[in-house]
Design a protein around this nucleic acid. Structure first.
Length: 227
DNA sequence: CCAGACGTTGTT
DNA sequence: GTCTGG
DNA sequence: CCAGACGTTGTT
DNA sequence: GTCTGG
């Protein structure tokens, strides 16, 4: 599962890492990107361009864009049998650029967040699907969802689901390759090995989507010693 | 055939 | 649009 | 994902 | 409890 993430690395760094062009006038650093906000994606249609799409998939046939609030994740195991995802799997795949994401653990009534990232601290790409939707007022909205899989051992201390993560450009290129079959695409949707990941607890400041500052990813124990 | 849904997560 | 349920 | 709102009628 | 907004 994945419901909040960060884009902290500079656009120049991301351009180099993923071999894309990014519109720097639209790019915004974020420590707390929430569903309904714009995320940075690379689609199978424009593989050399970073685009900003709305998080929460709105199928092109939807009558109301609010359906996107419920479509922030897609289970990899059932993509092929769900009507909302079947066509996007075949025609509209993307990767979602991030450098870390948050997961919550409920302890009593409190929700305690952790920040998860790659052990090598590099940015990564989460597998996703995208759509183009036209509102009744003829406004066009591009949107996306993040594909999840069973959590690896490392993540399972927090949750039983995690996003599908590609940590290298060759997997990204295969996922975005229009020549591969649906089965070949599905085979790419694997857990990232536990030893490639790292995490630490962070403060509950991140719980509110209104907050967006560097201290959101500061380890909880370090925050404590600052005061 | 037509009508109606189309989703995931976590918690109980 | 496409699938499921009736 | 979490936080925060959740409503209508009639009167000014 | 459930939906909307960020």
């Amino acid at each position: 599962m994945c419901g909040r993430y960060t884009i902290i690395k500079s656009p120049v760094e991301l351009e180099k890492e993923f071999e894309i062009d990014i519109n720097k006038e639209v790019f915004e650093t974020t420590y707390n990107l929430a569903p309904s906000q714009n995320g940075l994606v690379i689609t199978n249609q424009h593989k050399n361009e970073g685009q900003f799409f709305k998080w929460g998939l709105i199928p092109f046939w939807a009558k109301d864009e609010k359906i996107g609030y419920k479509m922030i994740n897609a289970r990899s195991e059932t993509l092929i049998e769900k009507s909302a995802f079947k066509t996007p799997l075949q025609k509209r795949r993307c990767v979602v650029i991030a450098d870390g994401f948050y997961e919550w653990k409920k302890i009593g009534k409190e929700k305690h967040p952790s920040y998860i990232y790659l052990a090598n601290k590099k940015p990564f790409a989460m597998a996703g699907l995208w759509e183009t939707w036209s509102s009744p007022a003829k406004e066009t909205i591009h949107s996306f969802t993040i594909i999840t899989t069973k959590a690896n051992e490392f993540m399972s201390t927090l949750h039983d689901r995690m996003p599908v993560i590609f940590d290298n450009n060759s997997d990204i290129n295969l996922w975005l390759d229009n020549e591969l079959s649906a089965n070949e695409h599905l085979q790419l949707l694997q857990q990232l090995p536990s030893d490639k990941m790292a995490m630490h607890q962070v403060s509950q400041m991140v719980n509110s989507p209104k907050n967006n500052q560097p201290s959101l990813i500061t380890p909880l124990e370090n925050l404590g010693t600052l005061f």
